[in-house]
């Protein structure tokens, strides 16, 4: 099956000379949840804005459902819904009016029943006749999601959907995203909350300084780059690591009270029993132990800082 969204050699240089995106290539499959990670100013919002028609690309091509976003913009944009990062609402209008407008703008027939369903799903039904300016920030965020869903998009962009959002709304949002995916909607989200990507995404792309530096299945990424750590709390503090344990990459922590062993999640797991056995033979006792798998956050930070190490330079704006 061809990808639902295909981005080829996409480059964006702003009038100021700032190169926000450098030769981006990306294909998104139908029905997947794709998380785009990257520090502030990496180019995430620029990428989304180009696909949605808000920013004009300098070079390259984007196809949505096989339709070119420039020459076939009507068909392409009809498929796409966008929840932008900034809260921008028609403050003087009612929730109902603004969501109805969105549906019409995208060329859809009036359907009060569908709009009602969207509003109910987002717990906005009771607020339908309220002016948007009377709503709380979280409610306004829900209104923006309702607007994006009003025309039944097949591809949904969520630009930092949970930034500054309370726990309840974040949970609702995750439930909604899963529900949409079950209906075959493709979801592309950008986020700072790495646990969000870890929890939700099927695939992860990391963007830094306008370059897509990595695209990988989340599971593969975790396996490939994930580190595991075994920490042993020792009965007696140790001054130095005994020569008998030099086979393992060990480090002493907490002034010798803890022994830390780092290893690749996929690789030499079998060494733990051997390490513990050897420690027993050497008479090193421990009272507790725990293991920890490095999170996507660790992976992300190490990736980005690794790049920054040899790239350097100024921050790109998003």
């Amino acid at each position: 099956m061809p990808p639902v969204l295909s981005i080829k050699n996409l480059t964006k240089t702003y009038a100021s000379g700032l190169c926000a995106l450098k030769n981006i290539n990306l294909a998104i499959d139908k029905g997947e949840i794709f998380a785009l990670l990257g520090p502030n100013g990496a180019g995430k919002t620029t990428l989304i804005s180009i696909v949605c028609g808000i920013v004009t690309a300098s070079e390259g091509q984007v196809l949505a459902g096989g339709h070119d976003i420039v020459s076939g913009y009507r068909a392409a944009r009809s498929m796409i819904g966008l929840v932008p990062q900034e809260l921008a609402t028609d403050t003087f209008e009612t929730v109902w009016a603004t969501v109805t407008l969105s549906r019409g703008l995208f060329g859809r027939r009036r359907d009060p029943g569908y709009v009602e369903k969207v509003l109910r799903d987002l717990s906005l039904w009771d607020k339908r006749n309220d002016r948007i300016m009377t709503l709380s920030g979280g409610m306004k965020r829900r209104v923006m999601i309702a607007k994006a869903l009003a025309h039944e998009p097949e591809i949904l962009f969520l630009d930092e959907p949970t930034a500054g959002v309370d726990v309840e709304l974040r949970r609702d949002m995750w439930t909604m995203v899963r529900g949409l995916r079950e209906r075959g909607v493709t979801i592309i989200l950008t986020t700072h909350y790495i646990e969000e990507a870890e929890e939700m995404a099927d695939r992860i792309g990391v963007i830094s300084k306008g370059e897509l530096i990595l695209v990988e299945d989340k599971a593969t990424l975790m396996k490939k780059l994930g580190k595991k750590q075994l920490t042993l709390q020792l009965l007696e503090p140790m001054g130095a690591i005994p020569a008998g344990l030099s086979r393992w990459p060990l480090a002493l922590r907490s002034e010798g009270h803890e022994l830390e062993y780092s290893f690749d999640a996929g690789g030499d797991r079998g060494d733990i029993p051997a390490l513990l056995r050897t420690m027993g033979e050497l008479g090193i006792g421990y009272k507790d132990l725990n293991t920890r798998q490095s999170s996507l956050e660790d992976i992300f930070v190490s990736l980005v800082s690794e790049r920054a190490g040899h790239a350097g330079g100024a921050e790109a704006r998003s």
Binding site: I54, R77, S78, I80, E86, T89, T91, F106
Partner: peptide, 13 residues
């Protein structure tokens, strides 16, 4: 107010 984003992203000429 920024709601122009919707107009620019809509399939409208």
């Amino acid at each position: 107010v920024g709601t122009i984003y919707e107009l620019l992203s809509a399939p409208i000429s």
